[in-house]
Protein backbone atom coordinates (compact mmCIF):
# COMPACT_ATOMS: atom_id res chain seq x y z
CA UNK A 1 0.00 0.00 0.00
CA UNK A 2 1.13 3.53 -0.75
CA UNK A 3 2.72 5.14 2.30
CA UNK A 4 1.98 8.74 3.15
CA UNK A 5 3.64 10.20 6.23
CA UNK A 6 1.32 10.69 9.17
CA UNK A 7 0.85 14.30 10.18
CA UNK A 8 1.84 15.79 13.48
CA UNK A 9 -0.55 18.71 13.54
CA UNK A 10 -3.26 19.08 10.97
CA UNK A 11 -6.57 17.90 9.56
CA UNK A 12 -7.52 14.59 8.03
CA UNK A 13 -10.68 14.37 5.98
CA UNK A 14 -11.64 10.73 5.97
CA UNK A 15 -14.42 8.67 4.39
CA UNK A 16 -14.61 10.81 1.28
CA UNK A 17 -16.50 9.02 -1.46
CA UNK A 18 -13.94 7.53 -3.88
CA UNK A 19 -13.20 9.96 -6.70
CA UNK A 20 -14.48 13.04 -4.88
CA UNK A 21 -11.24 14.18 -3.23
CA UNK A 22 -10.07 16.48 -6.04
CA UNK A 23 -13.45 18.20 -6.18
CA UNK A 24 -13.36 18.82 -2.43
CA UNK A 25 -9.74 19.98 -2.67
CA UNK A 26 -10.81 22.71 -5.08
CA UNK A 27 -14.04 23.61 -3.28
CA UNK A 28 -12.18 24.09 0.00
CA UNK A 29 -9.57 26.19 -1.83
CA UNK A 30 -6.82 23.90 -0.59
CA UNK A 31 -4.72 24.93 -3.58
CA UNK A 32 -4.20 28.20 -1.68
CA UNK A 33 -2.89 26.45 1.46
CA UNK A 34 0.89 26.84 1.78
CA UNK A 35 1.46 23.72 3.88
CA UNK A 36 1.58 20.23 2.43
CA UNK A 37 -1.64 18.58 1.39
CA UNK A 38 -1.93 14.92 0.45
CA UNK A 39 -4.77 13.56 -1.61
CA UNK A 40 -5.01 9.82 -1.31
CA UNK A 41 -7.37 8.18 -3.74
CA UNK A 42 -8.99 4.77 -3.83
CA UNK A 43 -7.98 3.63 -0.36
CA UNK A 44 -9.49 0.27 0.63
CA UNK A 45 -12.23 0.66 3.21
CA UNK A 46 -14.22 -2.04 4.96
CA UNK A 47 -17.34 0.09 5.07
CA UNK A 48 -17.10 1.97 1.79
CA UNK A 49 -15.17 -0.43 -0.42
CA UNK A 50 -13.01 2.39 -1.71
CA UNK A 51 -12.62 5.85 -0.28
CA UNK A 52 -10.52 9.00 -0.66
CA UNK A 53 -8.64 10.79 2.11
CA UNK A 54 -7.21 14.31 2.28
CA UNK A 55 -4.44 15.09 4.77
CA UNK A 56 -3.57 18.71 5.46
CA UNK A 57 -0.45 19.49 7.41
CA UNK A 58 -1.93 22.57 9.07
CA UNK A 59 -4.82 23.46 11.40
CA UNK A 60 -7.24 26.18 10.31
CA UNK A 61 -10.96 26.82 10.23
CA UNK A 62 -12.43 24.57 7.59
CA UNK A 63 -15.72 25.45 5.98
CA UNK A 64 -17.70 22.70 7.70
CA UNK A 65 -20.96 23.93 6.16
CA UNK A 66 -19.51 23.33 2.74
CA UNK A 67 -18.24 19.88 3.70
CA UNK A 68 -21.58 19.01 5.31
CA UNK A 69 -23.36 20.11 2.16
CA UNK A 70 -21.06 17.98 -0.02
CA UNK A 71 -21.32 14.82 2.08
CA UNK A 72 -22.26 14.37 5.74
CA UNK A 73 -20.44 11.03 5.80
CA UNK A 74 -17.03 12.70 5.62
CA UNK A 75 -15.27 12.67 8.98
CA UNK A 76 -13.02 15.53 10.00
CA UNK A 77 -10.17 14.53 12.30
CA UNK A 78 -8.16 17.25 13.98
CA UNK A 79 -4.66 15.97 14.71
CA UNK A 80 -2.46 17.42 17.43
CA UNK A 81 0.91 15.97 18.44
CA UNK A 82 0.28 12.91 16.28
CA UNK A 83 -2.97 12.14 18.07
CA UNK A 84 -6.59 12.64 17.10
CA UNK A 85 -7.65 15.61 19.22
CA UNK A 86 -11.19 15.82 17.86
CA UNK A 87 -13.46 13.96 15.47
CA UNK A 88 -16.01 16.29 13.95
CA UNK A 89 -19.29 14.85 12.69
CA UNK A 90 -20.84 16.75 9.85
CA UNK A 91 -24.45 17.75 9.56
CA UNK A 92 -26.44 19.33 6.77
CA UNK A 93 -26.17 23.10 7.35
CA UNK A 94 -29.42 25.04 7.63
CA UNK A 95 -28.09 27.72 5.28
CA UNK A 96 -25.28 27.79 2.78
CA UNK A 97 -23.83 31.07 1.61
CA UNK A 98 -21.90 31.68 -1.61
CA UNK A 99 -21.17 28.00 -2.19
CA UNK A 100 -23.55 27.20 -5.00
CA UNK A 101 -25.29 29.50 -7.43
CA UNK A 102 -28.96 29.61 -8.27
CA UNK A 103 -29.43 28.35 -11.82
CA UNK A 104 -32.99 29.62 -12.24
CA UNK A 105 -32.85 32.16 -15.10
CA UNK A 106 -35.93 33.85 -13.63
CA UNK A 107 -34.34 34.38 -10.19
CA UNK A 108 -33.46 37.93 -9.09
CA UNK A 109 -29.87 36.72 -8.55
CA UNK A 110 -29.60 36.21 -12.32
CA UNK A 111 -29.71 39.95 -12.95
CA UNK A 112 -28.34 41.42 -9.71
CA UNK A 113 -24.76 40.21 -9.62
CA UNK A 114 -23.90 41.58 -6.17
CA UNK A 115 -26.59 39.55 -4.37
CA UNK A 116 -25.19 36.78 -2.22
CA UNK A 117 -26.36 33.34 -3.33
CA UNK A 118 -28.02 31.76 -0.29
CA UNK A 119 -29.68 28.35 -0.07
CA UNK A 120 -31.75 27.05 2.84
CA UNK A 121 -32.37 23.46 3.84
CA UNK A 122 -35.94 22.68 2.78
CA UNK A 123 -36.03 18.94 3.44
CA UNK A 124 -33.48 17.48 5.82
CA UNK A 125 -34.44 13.87 5.10
CA UNK A 126 -33.92 14.21 1.39
CA UNK A 127 -31.15 16.83 1.69
CA UNK A 128 -33.03 19.30 -0.52
CA UNK A 129 -31.85 22.90 -0.59
CA UNK A 130 -33.79 25.75 -2.10
CA UNK A 131 -32.74 29.24 -3.17
CA UNK A 132 -33.51 31.74 -0.41
CA UNK A 133 -34.99 34.15 -2.96
CA UNK A 134 -36.82 32.11 -5.61
CA UNK A 135 -37.05 28.69 -3.86
CA UNK A 136 -35.59 26.87 -6.87
CA UNK A 137 -34.17 23.50 -5.89
CA UNK A 138 -30.37 23.40 -5.76
CA UNK A 139 -28.81 21.17 -8.38
CA UNK A 140 -26.15 19.02 -6.69
Amino acid sequence: MLKVDSIENGIVLDHIKAGKAMEIYHQLNLDHVSSSVAIIKNVKSQVMGLKDIIKINDVFDLNLDLLGYIDTNITVNIIKDNKILEKKKLDLPNEIHSIIKCKNPRCITSIEQELEHIFTLADKEKGIYRCYYCEEKAAK
Binding site: N104, Y132, C134
Partner: peptide, 25 residues
Protein backbone atom coordinates in the same frame (compact mmCIF):
# COMPACT_ATOMS: atom_id res chain seq x y z
CA UNK B 1 -40.65 39.93 -13.25
CA UNK B 2 -37.81 38.25 -11.35
CA UNK B 3 -38.50 35.67 -8.66
CA UNK B 4 -37.41 36.65 -5.16
CA UNK B 5 -37.27 40.37 -5.97
CA UNK B 6 -39.75 41.40 -3.25
CA UNK B 7 -37.78 39.37 -0.75
CA UNK B 8 -34.69 41.36 -1.66
CA UNK B 9 -36.59 44.64 -1.23
CA UNK B 10 -37.93 43.55 2.17
CA UNK B 11 -34.41 42.84 3.42
CA UNK B 12 -33.36 46.44 2.89
CA UNK B 13 -36.21 48.54 4.28
CA UNK B 14 -38.01 49.08 7.55
CA UNK B 15 -41.43 49.75 6.04
CA UNK B 16 -43.72 46.85 5.10
CA UNK B 17 -43.24 45.31 1.65
CA UNK B 18 -46.08 43.43 0.00
CA UNK B 19 -45.19 41.10 -2.83
CA UNK B 20 -47.65 41.95 -5.59
CA UNK B 21 -46.20 39.19 -7.80
CA UNK B 22 -42.59 38.16 -8.38
CA UNK B 23 -42.42 36.44 -11.76
CA UNK B 24 -43.91 32.97 -11.68
CA UNK B 25 -43.15 32.61 -7.99
Amino acid sequence: PKEGSSKVASLHVNIPVINAGDGGH
